[in-house]
Simulated scan of single mutants.
Amino acid sequence: MKRFFLVILCLGVISCKGDKSNETENNKTSTDSIDVEALLPDGLATSEPVILDVEEANKLVELPLGCIATEYPNKLGQTLENKEAMGEPHELHPAFYGCFDWHSSVHAHWSLVSLLKQFPKLEKKETIRETLKNSLSSENIQGELEYFNRAESGSFERTYGWAWLLQLAEELRTWEDPLGQELANNLQPLTDYIVQEYIEFLPKLNYPIRVGEHTNTAFGLTLAYDYANATGNEEFLEAIKKRAQDFYLKDDNCPVSWEPGGYDFLSPCLSEIDIMRRVLPKNAFSLWMDDFMPQMKKKDFEMEVGEVSDRTDGKLVHLDGLNFSRAWVLYGLANQYPQQFGHLKTLANEHVAYSFPNVVGDSYEGGHWLGTFAIYALQEAQAKVKQ
């Protein structure tokens, strides 16, 4: 019966132009084998948040600056239509050739923009500006667009890289700096292409992809939703809302005890929550959570951090990313609905606390991408609810 009322409530919201589904409402984990508190800077207690200040930002900015122009090692993820399709990374991807793979290069650019927006007086602010201007030139973006238009590139970076490209586009568009607007305009042809590809692809995807890695559908929809919402693209927004509800509205009893998988950097259960809290109004979301993961409403809800055994292994280090991505979902949930989920901030803090000390100075296997996840998580910790 609850499910029936939930569907009716959601249908009513879809037909209502005045929906404000993202309005703000007016744990602790077991770490027996981990001395989390000993890892924290300056003896910070695990119940306290790690704060992204200018000192930490100056450290974190070294990660994207250090990899954007690092061409090798490189994982192209390319389907070759013929031998002429081969080329060096900088030839195939004039803007996004560094940081080991395309999507990591994209979100490394996002990291630079995000940090510079938050901390305009960064020590290397001029280097960052010059790097962004050189990389995101209109000529380079045209080269990226040409790659996407290749016959065998239809599924390239679908949808993980697509989502991060839209996140970068949103960050540039909302940067109140002439350079931000210039670079957003340069990026716009590729942004428009990705949006159109998304709109065409979503109706064809009959079943969501529920994994803890790149192809997770819920994660891709979440970043795409934020872009569509920020830019007022109603067609795109409605397409995302419809597919999210098609895919996830009837889900219940998510098997979170099966998590994490050994290579996960996303939580299948929590990624689903992240998109549904955006597309459902307050009452509908609360009912949905009662079926999907009711245990999260309990003050003593526990979720152990993902433990990393070898940070030089590119797959095993994914679990540091999982800790950050779990944290940003928990922070977002607690910020939007503090009365029901405010207790989850402690759990989010503990996840960040375990992995944050390992980000700077990590091997290239983790360093080329984990900084982005840390920045995004800490940004969500202090973010206002996106309307």
Rank of each mutant, 00 (worst) to 15 (best):
G180I: 00
G180N: 01
Q181E: 07
E182P: 01
L183Q: 07
L183F: 02
L183K: 04
L183P: 06
L183M: 06
N185S: 09
N185D: 11
N186A: 11
N186E: 05
L187D: 06
L187H: 02
Q188L: 11
Q188G: 05
P189Q: 06
P189K: 06
P189M: 07
L190S: 04
L190P: 08
D192M: 13
D192F: 09
D192A: 14
Y193K: 10
Y193A: 06
I194H: 04
Q196W: 03
E197M: 01
E197P: 00
E197R: 14
Y198P: 01
Y198I: 14
I199Q: 15
E200Y: 14
F201H: 14
F201E: 10
F201I: 10
P203R: 10
K204M: 14
K204P: 06
N206A: 15
N206M: 14
Y207K: 14
P208M: 00
P208N: 02
P208Q: 03
R210K: 13
R210A: 01
V211R: 01
V211D: 10
E213I: 13
E213G: 09
H214Y: 07
H214T: 03
T215N: 13
T215A: 13
T215I: 09
N216A: 02
N216F: 01
N216V: 00
T217V: 01
A218C: 09
A218V: 05
G220I: 03
G220T: 04
L221T: 03
L221K: 11
T222L: 08
L223A: 09
L223F: 14
L223Y: 15
L223W: 15
A224H: 13
A224M: 14
Y225P: 10
Y225T: 09
D226E: 13
Y227M: 04
Y227T: 06
Y227H: 12
A228F: 05
A228S: 12
N229Q: 15
A230T: 11
A230N: 07
A230W: 02
T231Y: 04
G232Y: 06
G232Q: 01
G232H: 07
N233G: 05
N233Y: 09
E234M: 07
F236P: 00
L237E: 11
L237P: 00
L237N: 11
E238C: 07
E238G: 03
A239F: 02
K241L: 05
K242H: 08
K242C: 04
K242A: 12
R243T: 12
R243H: 13
R243A: 10
Q245V: 10
Q245E: 08
Q245D: 07
Q245C: 09
D246P: 02
D246F: 08
Y248S: 01
Y248D: 02
Y248N: 00
Y248H: 07
L249K: 08
L249G: 09
K250F: 15
D251Y: 15
D252K: 14
N253K: 14
N253L: 09
N253A: 13
C254P: 05
P255R: 10
P255G: 09
V256F: 15
V256C: 08
V256H: 15
S257D: 15
S257G: 08
W258E: 13
P260A: 11
